[in-house]
Structures are given as C-alpha cells and as structure tokens.
Simulated assay, not measured.
Amino acid sequence: MKIGFIGLGMMGRGIAQNLLRTGQSIIVHDRMERATAPFADQGAAVAASARELAAAADLVFTSLPTPADVLAVFEGENGLAAGLRPGTAWFDLTTNSVDVVRQIEAQLAKAGVDFLDAPVSGGPAGAASGKLAIWIGGNAAAYDRFRPVLDSIADQVQHVGPIGAGTITKLAHNMASAAIKSVIAEVITMGVKAGADPLALWGAMRTGAAGRMRGFDNVQRFLAGTTETSSFALRLMQKDINLALQLGRELDVPMRLCAAVGQDVHEAMSRGWGGHDSQSVLVLQQQRAGIDPIAIPDADVRRVIALG
C-alpha cells in the first residue's frame, strides 16, 4: 500500500516520520521544498503536486494549518480532487471546519473516494512520539480498513460518528481547554494578589477534588441526567463562589469568567435547585440551546471513564 502525506509542518512531519519508522511506503508533498528533503533522504518519494501524490497513493493524509489550506490542496487542476481514484481514502488530520469537511466528503463520495475528518490532539511532541489522539468522523468501513495504519501513528484512535463528528469533537475539546485555562488564570491571579505563593497555591489546588480528577470527568451527573441527586449541593457551591468573587472585588481583580459562572449559579438557585447537585447548573446550557436533556446510562458513563 502506498501512503501519501501532504503537510510536513510541526505536526505533520512527526506523524509522517512515524509512518516511515513502521516501514510504510510513503510519498510526500509540501509547498516548502525544504520540508520534503529529509524524507527524500530517508527513501520517501516526493510528489511535485497534490494531484501527482493522489494518483500514486492508496491512502492520503493531510495535515495543514487552516480550512482554506485544505481547500487549496483539494481544488484545482493540480489538486487532490483531480488525482484521487475510486477506492482510495483521504484522512484529513487538520483542525478543519465542519462545513468544509462535509462539503469535501459529499463531493468525493460521488467519485467513490472515502473522505474522513480526523483531527489530532497531542501537539508536536505527541505527533513525534505517537502519544496522540485521533478523532475520526466518516465512513466506518473505511475507518476499519485503515485502522492498523492509524494505530501506527497514534495511541488513542476513536471513530466518533459520521462525517464532521471528528471536527466537532476537536473544536469542543480545544474550546473547553482554552476556557478552563482562562478560569484557572483568574483564580490564581486572585490568590496571588491575596497573598498566596503561586507555586504553593497551584500545587495545593492540584490535590483537591477537582485537581485530582481529569478535567473532563467532573460532569458525570450532568451526562447521566441525575443532577437532582446531590453529592455536593448547589447552594454550597454558590456560597463558595460568592466568597471567591467577594475576595476578587476586594482586591480589584477582574474575574469575568468566574462572574459569569456565578450568574448561572444564581439563575439555577432561583429555579429552586439549591438542594440539587452542583452539576445541575450545567443543565441551564442545554435548556438555552433547546436540546433534549442528556441522559446517558450511568453504566456507560462509567465505562468511558474506566477506559482512561
């Protein structure tokens, strides 16, 4: 099997190197000639265009900066669309847009080509080491067919649904990551201005209930739809939030994100949820979005957590 790889930047070069290390036969392309030179030195073929690469490959990977870059590689007389053959597959590792991946998939499906969105998480170090997550949306049969190749470049490979599901997962993950870090910046700033040593404060926070738990795990009751049963009541969380916000005001520390959380808690309390679990405040967001209540069986939630 011949594997084509386009985009040998900070992420792509590590992934492509891992393909080479496992003995795969690869052909590479990048708009920067200096990016392909190390691969040519190791025996990889170099394509002059995306079209040339597609015509020679059974499986194509792209790892590019933006949706516009993906479309530029896809379209035109020298693009992937002009060279991909029926029966081949293209996994796009780019953090793309949902509209773009669905547009490409619909067009290629007519030509008998499988396109799957497959964004990655792990950074350049993870790309180089293989400690990488890949979240894949698209044809499940194509995913199964090329699963051994995917396992050679990542240790956490998951098919998460139809086309677009991988991209949705990546965008949700990165948005949550950015928001969590911003909130932590607010509270550490508050703590330091109040007189705490930053290292001692951060180290102590990591040993608390939230600090010991993986950041995405502390929503189990919300996902199971069981927030009316309490392990830590909303009214108690509101007391703690109010005390923290009061300290921030006294110290003249801006805490915009934390204040927004406080407003949500106040709204939930006004609905009579004070005796519900602290996670009940999360229910407000799905109500605002007009979606049905999430109610995943508790056993399924625990199964996912057990996977690590």
Rank of each mutant, 00 (worst) to 15 (best):
L284A: 13
G262I: 14
E267H: 13
R256Y: 12
G248D: 09
D197W: 00
V183N: 01
D252G: 02
V265P: 03
A200Q: 08
A194I: 14
L251I: 13
H173Y: 08
L257M: 13
A176L: 10
R221Q: 06
R288D: 11
Q279I: 07
M255G: 00
M213P: 06
I291H: 09
G275R: 02
R214M: 07
Q286F: 12
L251G: 05
Q220M: 05
V253Y: 02
S270M: 11
A268R: 05
G195S: 08
W273S: 09
T189M: 04
L234F: 02
R249Y: 05
A260W: 14
E228H: 10
H266T: 15
S177R: 03
C258Q: 11
A209H: 13
E228C: 12
G272A: 11
A289R: 08
Q263H: 14
A178E: 00
V192P: 00
K193E: 09
A200I: 01
A210L: 09
T189N: 03
G211C: 05
T226E: 04
Q246M: 13
L201T: 04
F222C: 01
G191L: 06
I188Q: 07
I291N: 09
A244H: 07
L234W: 01
A179S: 10
M213L: 12
L223R: 05
D277P: 01
V253Q: 08
L236Q: 12
G290Y: 13
R249D: 12
L245S: 06
